[in-house]
Amino acid sequence: MRMIIHDLEQSDFQRLFSRPLNHTMVISPDATIRHCLGCFGCWIKTPGACVIRDGFGNMGEHLSKCSEVLVISQCCYGGFSPFVKNIFDRSISYVHPNFRNRNGEMHHKRRYKNTANLRVFFYGETITEGEETIARGLVAANALNLGWHAAEVSFSYDIAELEGRVG
């Protein structure tokens, strides 16, 4: 399965994805999402699922079925927009609370065995070179933590530039 996580207006999303999407789950900012409370309930109360049941409580399970995760996000200070970041924050049930060493650093043990290609498309009119450096480092760190492959990171001035590139 492919997952698309984005923060676009519906009209912009439809412009980028005009054809029917098969085997694809789309996570859009059209529903109310609550923020992670840092309670670790997704590890120690209901392992594998967030205790907040607002429609975004099963992100870890959904990610376990993905072979590709495509992210389209406004670039905020070199990272994701608040909505997209919230999706990642609410997804930590995807990993196990215990630790493993990877690349000489402590990271979380994997709960699931799937590996996904992480493709990230940042957009924004004021992205600086420094923010591009941060964003590339962030996506590499995300991929390392989640046990994925950082397949693509790109930057666009506006959403129209993404047409034909994100399919």
Partner: peptide, 8 residues
């Protein structure tokens, strides 16, 4: 949080 600033 996930290598970054918490979303809130």
């Amino acid at each position: 949080y996930v290598d970054g600033i918490p979303s809130h």
